[in-house]
Lab assay of single mutants.
Amino acid sequence: TEDEKKIQELLKRANGDVSKAEKLAQSQGNEELARRLREYANK
């Protein structure tokens, strides 16, 4: 999905570090994506 692409892109930029990727999403003002990242990471 589009969200998964965004999540994978963020994870790439954060070198696979979920908490960093989450902070990136939040810094972009994207709380929804940050929440999805957390769920994605907890799979």
Rank of each mutant, 00 (worst) to 15 (best):
34 A>G: 04
2 E>G: 09
13 R>C: 14
29 G>P: 02
26 Q>A: 10
18 V>H: 05
2 E>I: 13
38 R>M: 04
3 D>C: 15
1 T>I: 12
39 E>W: 06
1 T>P: 12
43 K>M: 12
39 E>H: 05
31 E>V: 10
11 L>T: 00
16 G>L: 03
16 G>R: 02
25 A>F: 02
15 N>I: 02
1 T>Q: 11
23 K>D: 05
5 K>Y: 11
12 K>L: 11
37 L>I: 15
12 K>G: 05
20 K>D: 04
39 E>I: 05
9 E>T: 05
22 E>Y: 13
22 E>G: 04
39 E>G: 03
21 A>W: 02
4 E>W: 15
23 K>F: 10
14 A>P: 01
11 L>F: 03
29 G>N: 05
5 K>E: 11
11 L>Q: 00
34 A>I: 08
6 K>Q: 14
20 K>L: 15
1 T>A: 13
42 N>P: 04
11 L>E: 00
26 Q>L: 15
27 S>V: 08
5 K>I: 11
40 Y>H: 04
42 N>G: 10
19 S>V: 12
5 K>S: 10
37 L>E: 00
7 I>G: 01
6 K>L: 15
38 R>C: 07
1 T>M: 12
41 A>M: 14
20 K>F: 11
12 K>F: 10
30 N>Q: 10
40 Y>G: 02
22 E>V: 15
37 L>V: 10
4 E>R: 09
24 L>M: 13
30 N>A: 06
27 S>C: 15
12 K>H: 09
10 L>T: 02
19 S>M: 12
2 E>T: 10
32 E>C: 10
25 A>R: 02
4 E>F: 14
31 E>W: 15
39 E>V: 05
29 G>V: 03
30 N>S: 07
21 A>Y: 01
25 A>Y: 02
33 L>F: 05
20 K>Q: 10
33 L>S: 01
15 N>M: 07
3 D>W: 15
40 Y>R: 05
22 E>N: 03
15 N>D: 09
43 K>I: 10
11 L>K: 00
11 L>R: 01
21 A>D: 00
38 R>F: 03
13 R>T: 07
6 K>C: 14
4 E>A: 09
41 A>T: 07
16 G>C: 14
8 Q>I: 14
19 S>G: 11
12 K>V: 08
17 D>L: 04
33 L>A: 04
16 G>Q: 04
34 A>F: 04
37 L>A: 02
15 N>G: 14
23 K>R: 11
7 I>N: 01
7 I>C: 08
12 K>D: 08
8 Q>Y: 12
32 E>K: 06
18 V>D: 01
37 L>C: 03
8 Q>P: 02
4 E>H: 09
15 N>L: 06
17 D>S: 06
43 K>A: 12
3 D>R: 06
23 K>M: 11
13 R>D: 06
9 E>M: 09
35 R>H: 06
23 K>N: 06
18 V>P: 07
42 N>H: 08
14 A>S: 08
37 L>R: 01
1 T>K: 11
25 A>H: 01
21 A>V: 02
30 N>I: 03
20 K>I: 14
24 L>N: 03
15 N>S: 06
40 Y>A: 03
24 L>Q: 04
27 S>T: 08
38 R>H: 08
8 Q>A: 11
42 N>Y: 11
19 S>T: 11
40 Y>P: 00
33 L>E: 02
38 R>S: 03
35 R>D: 05
25 A>D: 01
22 E>M: 15
34 A>R: 04
1 T>W: 14
4 E>I: 14
14 A>R: 01
10 L>C: 07
27 S>Y: 08
6 K>Y: 13
28 Q>P: 02
36 R>H: 06
36 R>K: 14
26 Q>F: 12
30 N>W: 15
18 V>T: 05
27 S>M: 14
24 L>G: 01
4 E>C: 15
31 E>K: 07
30 N>Y: 13
8 Q>W: 15
9 E>F: 04
16 G>W: 15
38 R>Y: 03
22 E>C: 15
25 A>I: 04
28 Q>L: 14
42 N>C: 14
3 D>P: 06
33 L>D: 03
31 E>C: 14
6 K>E: 15
43 K>H: 09
29 G>K: 03
37 L>G: 00
34 A>V: 08
37 L>T: 01
36 R>T: 04
6 K>I: 14
27 S>L: 14
43 K>P: 06
8 Q>M: 14
39 E>S: 05
32 E>M: 08
43 K>S: 11
42 N>W: 09
25 A>S: 02
27 S>E: 15
22 E>P: 01
39 E>T: 04
35 R>W: 07
9 E>G: 05
31 E>I: 12
21 A>Q: 01
11 L>N: 00
35 R>F: 08
11 L>C: 12
38 R>K: 06
32 E>T: 07
13 R>V: 09
35 R>Q: 10
43 K>D: 08
7 I>M: 12
38 R>A: 05
14 A>W: 05
20 K>M: 13
42 N>F: 10
28 Q>K: 04
12 K>Q: 10
33 L>N: 01
42 N>L: 12
42 N>S: 13
9 E>S: 06
31 E>P: 11
4 E>L: 14
11 L>V: 04
38 R>Q: 04
20 K>R: 11
32 E>W: 12
26 Q>S: 07
18 V>E: 02
35 R>G: 05
33 L>G: 00
3 D>I: 15
39 E>C: 13
40 Y>L: 11
8 Q>R: 14
28 Q>M: 15
17 D>E: 03
41 A>D: 03
41 A>L: 13
27 S>N: 09
22 E>A: 15
43 K>T: 12
33 L>P: 00
11 L>M: 06
8 Q>D: 05
2 E>C: 14
35 R>K: 12
34 A>H: 01
42 N>D: 09
41 A>I: 13
3 D>K: 05
24 L>Y: 09
24 L>R: 03
37 L>Q: 00
31 E>T: 11
1 T>L: 13
32 E>G: 07
3 D>S: 08
6 K>S: 10
20 K>E: 10
12 K>C: 15
34 A>P: 00
4 E>M: 13
33 L>I: 06
3 D>T: 12
38 R>G: 02
27 S>Q: 14
43 K>N: 10
5 K>C: 15
33 L>K: 00
22 E>K: 03
9 E>C: 15
30 N>L: 15
2 E>L: 12
40 Y>V: 03
19 S>F: 12
26 Q>H: 10
28 Q>I: 10
13 R>N: 07
29 G>M: 04
1 T>S: 13
39 E>F: 05
21 A>I: 03
34 A>N: 01
10 L>S: 02
12 K>R: 15
30 N>R: 06
31 E>D: 11
9 E>Y: 05
23 K>P: 00
27 S>P: 01
8 Q>V: 12
20 K>G: 05
26 Q>K: 12
10 L>H: 02
34 A>L: 10
6 K>A: 14
2 E>V: 10
1 T>H: 12
2 E>Q: 10
12 K>M: 12
3 D>F: 15
41 A>G: 07
23 K>V: 08
2 E>D: 13
13 R>Q: 14
2 E>W: 14
29 G>I: 02
39 E>R: 05
10 L>E: 01
1 T>E: 12
30 N>M: 14
21 A>T: 00
5 K>P: 06
6 K>R: 11
1 T>N: 12
3 D>E: 14
2 E>N: 10
19 S>K: 13
5 K>L: 12
42 N>A: 14
7 I>F: 09
15 N>W: 07
14 A>F: 15
22 E>D: 02
18 V>F: 14
22 E>H: 07
38 R>D: 00
13 R>L: 14
18 V>I: 12
30 N>P: 01
35 R>N: 06
3 D>G: 06
33 L>H: 01
10 L>M: 07
24 L>T: 04
37 L>N: 00
17 D>C: 10
40 Y>F: 08
13 R>A: 13
11 L>S: 00
23 K>S: 08
26 Q>E: 09
27 S>W: 09
43 K>E: 09
27 S>R: 09
30 N>H: 09
40 Y>T: 02
41 A>N: 06
12 K>E: 08
31 E>M: 13
19 S>L: 13
8 Q>F: 13
6 K>V: 13
37 L>S: 00
31 E>S: 10
28 Q>D: 13
22 E>T: 09
24 L>E: 07
14 A>E: 02
42 N>R: 13
13 R>G: 05
34 A>S: 04
21 A>G: 02
3 D>Q: 09
14 A>Y: 10
20 K>S: 06
23 K>T: 07
4 E>N: 10
24 L>F: 07
32 E>F: 07
23 K>I: 09
25 A>L: 10
34 A>Q: 03
40 Y>S: 03
10 L>Y: 12
19 S>Y: 14
39 E>P: 00
21 A>F: 02
22 E>I: 15
43 K>F: 11
19 S>P: 04
11 L>Y: 02
20 K>H: 07
9 E>V: 05
16 G>M: 06
10 L>V: 04
1 T>C: 15
36 R>E: 04
17 D>P: 01
18 V>L: 09
19 S>H: 13
17 D>V: 05
37 L>W: 01
10 L>K: 00
15 N>V: 03
9 E>N: 07
14 A>V: 10
1 T>V: 12
28 Q>F: 09
18 V>Y: 14
8 Q>N: 07
41 A>Y: 13
40 Y>D: 01
